[in-house]
Amino acid sequence: MGFKLLSKLLVYLTASIMAIASPLAFSVDSSGEYPTVSEIPVGEVRLYQIADGVWSHIATQSFDGAVYPSNGLIVRDGDELLLIDTAWGAKNTAALLAEIEKQIGLPVTRAVSTHFHDDRVGGVDVLRAAGVATYASPSTRRLAEVEGNEIPTHSLEGLSSSGDAVRFGPVELFYPGAAHSTDNLIVYVPSASVLYGGCAIYELSRTSAGNVADADLAEWPTSIERIQQHYPEAQFVIPGHGLPGGLDLLKHTTNVVKAHTNRSVVE
C-alpha cells in the first residue's frame, strides 16, 4: 500500500471513529477524501466538511520552486461564519470567499490569524475590503508590521502568557507558548472536538522541520505538551499544512522538532 493511500485511509478511519463516538456532533463529509496538494491548482481553494458547521479550507501556493498546501478553518456561528487564517495570499483568499459563498452561503463576518507569517495573514486586506472584521493577538499584529505583512485590524486580548485561553464565538483560542513562531495560536472547536494546530503542528508525513527561522526550538516541545494537557479530548487535529489526523500529530511534531534540534547540535 502506497504512503499517500495509507495517509488518506488514516484520515478516513479517524473521521469514521469520530462519527461513531459522537453521532450528534459529527456529520463528516462523505463526498470524498481530504484534498491534497496535487489536486488543488494554485489560485483555487477546496472546502472539506469535518463536522456539522465545521470545515477546513485548503489552498496551495508556490514557494521556492515548489507547491505547498495550506489549511485553515471555518466555523459556523449562528447565521454567520468565523474564518481562521487566510488562504495564503490575496488571490487565494478572494477564491476562498467565493467558494464559501458557493458552498455554504453564509457571510464571513470575523477572521482570526493564528500567527504573523504570510500563509496566515496574506489576504487580510481582501477580507477587510469584503467587510470582514480581522483579528490577531497584539504580538501577531506587531510582528506582521515588522515583517511588512498585512496586519489584522483588531487585537485579541488575554493571550499574552503561555497557557492563556479565551473564548471567541464558537471557538476557544489558546496560546501554548512559542513553537513554530513566538505568537502562534491554537484554535479548538469544543462542539466538535476539532483542534486546529496551525503551523505549530505537523502532518504525519512530514519528517523535516522546514521553516524554523522564527521558531523557538527549545520551547516548542513544552508548548505541545500544554496543548495535549489542555485538549486531551480532541479527536480531529488539523495541521497548518497537509493531512489531518488525531492527537498523534502532536507527538510526531515533537519528535521531528527534537530530531532537528539534535542534528543542529551535532553539526
Rank of each mutant, 00 (worst) to 15 (best):
185 L>Q: 02
70 S>H: 01
70 S>F: 04
180 H>Q: 05
259 A>R: 12
255 N>T: 10
163 G>M: 08
78 G>P: 04
42 V>K: 10
182 T>Q: 14
178 A>H: 09
69 P>G: 15
77 D>T: 04
258 K>Q: 14
240 G>Y: 03
16 S>T: 15
94 A>W: 11
3 F>R: 06
239 P>T: 02
56 S>Y: 15
175 Y>N: 08
134 T>W: 01
147 E>T: 13
35 P>L: 14
109 T>W: 06
241 H>Y: 05
204 L>P: 05
262 N>V: 10
49 Q>I: 11
49 Q>D: 12
139 S>F: 04
152 P>D: 00
256 V>F: 05
120 R>S: 03
90 A>V: 08
64 D>Y: 13
112 V>W: 04
213 A>N: 11
238 I>F: 05
140 T>F: 04
60 T>H: 15
264 S>I: 14
59 A>H: 06
91 K>G: 13
125 D>C: 03
159 L>F: 06
208 S>R: 09
250 L>H: 04
173 L>I: 14
203 E>P: 04
5 L>I: 15
158 G>R: 09
210 G>E: 07
56 S>H: 14
87 A>F: 01
243 L>Q: 15
248 D>Q: 14
235 Q>V: 11
57 H>Y: 06
255 N>W: 12
37 V>C: 07
143 L>P: 04
28 V>M: 15
255 N>P: 05
198 G>R: 03
173 L>V: 14
195 L>K: 01
127 L>S: 01
20 I>F: 08
16 S>R: 08
237 V>P: 02
112 V>S: 03
2 G>Y: 14
93 T>V: 00
101 E>S: 12
51 A>N: 09
6 L>C: 15
144 A>G: 06
121 V>T: 05
153 T>H: 13
135 Y>E: 01
233 E>F: 11
48 Y>Q: 15
56 S>D: 10
83 L>T: 02
201 I>T: 07
176 P>H: 04
93 T>L: 01
39 E>L: 15
166 V>H: 08
253 T>Y: 03
60 T>D: 03
33 E>T: 07
215 A>N: 05
57 H>Q: 06
97 L>T: 05
255 N>Y: 09
37 V>G: 15
158 G>W: 07
200 A>T: 06
195 L>T: 02
266 V>D: 15
40 I>K: 14
215 A>V: 06
102 K>I: 12
177 G>S: 06
54 V>S: 03
173 L>K: 03
145 E>T: 12
31 S>F: 08
210 G>R: 05
14 T>L: 08
44 E>A: 11
54 V>C: 02
230 H>E: 11
214 D>I: 05
178 A>F: 07
